[in-house]
Amino acid sequence: MQPFVDFDNVSLRYGGEENGLLALSDINLKVKEGEFIAIVGPSGCGKSTFLKATTGLWPVTSGSITVNQEKVRGPVNCVGMAFQNPTLLPWRNTINNVLLPLEVVQPQRSMWGRKRQDYIQSAKDLLEMVNLTGSEEKFPWQLSGGMQQRVSICRSLIHEPKLLMLDEPFGALDMFTREDLWVALQDIWLKKRPTIILVTHDIREAVYLADRVIIMAARPGRIVAEEVIPFERPRPLSLTFDSEFGKIFSSIREKITEVSV
């Protein structure tokens, strides 16, 4: 089967072919459709550049990226994205923030008038999955940081993207909220099965959520190792205290330490 996301010898240099900063070097990576992968590594290892390259927001210098059997040339349509910063629109309430992508992306955009009620219903269903029922009419300033992040994740999912890119979405949250959202994200993924690429600093998060953890090193950003996470789904939170989990965690931690020095 063709991989859903395929990086073929990708290098990316910021600012000039010759002497620019080499942010990604010879990346080869295949992600299957419906797979959940996590990318971890020290800061400055080009994780965010990786996201920009995948979505076509920044052109690669050499090599090629294929997403959904099409070579990436410009911005890829139909990708959902969420970042560390929730970036909600303060003048819209929760439900209208979630609906934003449907006003932009095709084909939903042209059916906006007719299917509006259906869209609102699916936004409500998503909000229910992240325990935000009752907050539909609230504005971002009335929500806590964790709630805003939930809305942001719903927004990235509303148009049922085949590919979901998450750039440290839980980075700014406290541990309890973060763990709640891990569980919620796993539920959503099990139900809808998008392909997810999660960029994170948090090794526990990566091991708990992903099928496969990719370890990157910095300067230049490159893939140094990968670890397949064998645990069954759905994974309970208590798994993070399991000794097998601990072993995988330490092995990844060691690999990152090796490449950091």
Partner: peptide, 10 residues
């Protein structure tokens, strides 16, 4: 980031 979100939606 917000610009990226929208660009990635086409």
């Amino acid at each position: 980031e917000l610009k990226d979100v929208l660009l990635a939606l086409g």
